[in-house]
């Protein structure tokens, strides 16, 4: 058994972590720490060890530790991942660079401001948990007022960070918001005209430049890039139909 209470050999891995604290560590810099990583040690495990034993001022967000809350999204060796399931040894490097997500204002160290993301998600009406539309006929046990259904999107902001357009255009609704709009359309959560009015503008569905990186990095297999393209197809069909109805 190793020092982490798990089995498996350990090897030293250096974490190069971006640090920023307005007025104190300003401009940002990288701090470097070394940990003894076993095959199961995640980036979040390493951050917790650093915070507990080396630098208690290190700031990062986390909650569930099992990829369902979407809180610990960050860049690991330049690629967006959930720190709680990204294993250090899987990176295959002796040094692992840990940085905050892009496209969101940096608050401190690895913590970004999620407000812009939430503001882009809210108009779709697709919150993380919402009423089920699939089982209206199902019998409910006594005391259960209604069923709820969990959406795939864990609202981690990883897709916006990986999107090259969102990184340079803060007004862009972004992959998660547009994917949510598509869900609102296909489930009937919102009237089609309302959804299309929300996405049919320069910073909406047409701003996407098809890099599809959002789909590549999404830890929850939402495939937001694919949803954006499907939303465009529906929008074009809607416009064509409306054009001929007018004629």
């Amino acid at each position: 058994m190793n020092q982490h209470g798990r089995f498996g050999p350990t090897r030293p891995i250096t974490l190069k972590i971006l640090r920023y604290k307005p007025g104190f560590i300003d401009p940002p810099r990288y701090d470097t720490f070394q940990v003894q990583a076993d095959p199961l040690m995640t980036v979040l495990d390493a951050l917790e060890e650093i915070k507990a034993t080396a630098d208690s001022t290190l700031l990062y967000r986390h909650s569930c530790h099992h990829a369902s809350c979407g809180t610990c999204g960050m860049k690991v060796n330049g690629r967006e991942q959930l720190a709680c399931v990204a294993r250090l040894v899987d990176e295959g490097t002796d040094e692992v660079v840990v940085e905050p997500l892009g496209s969101a204002p940096l608050v401190a160290d690895l913590v970004v401001d999620m407000t812009p993301f939430a503001l882009h998600m809210a108009p779709s009406g697709m919150a993380l948990v919402r009423d089920s539309e699939f089982m209206p006929e199902a019998e409910r046990p006594a005391g259960v007022e209604r069923y709820t259904r969990y959406e795939d999107c864990i609202e981690c902001n990883i897709c916006l960070s990986a999107c090259p357009v969102a990184n340079t255009n803060p007004g862009f609704i972004g992959p998660a918001g547009l994917a949510a709009a598509y869900r609102a359309l296909v489930t009937g959560e919102r009237p089609a005209a309302e959804v299309f009015a929300y996405v049919d503008h320069d910073d909406g569905v047409w701003r996407c430049h098809s890099a599809m990186e959002c789909s590549a990095v999404c830890p929850s297999d939402v495939q937001p890039g694919h949803k954006i393209m499907a939303l465009r197809r529906e929008l074009v069909a809607y416009k064509v139909k409306r054009f001929f109805k007018r004629g």
Binding site: R29, Y30, F33, Q34, S103
Partner: peptide, 18 residues
């Protein structure tokens, strides 16, 4: 135990996004 090793500055990362 985690051990701090070194510190150094970083520059702008905007161009990397594109």
């Amino acid at each position: 135990m985690a051990v701090p090793i070194q510190q150094k500055s970083t520059g702008a990362r905007a161009l990397q996004a594109w």
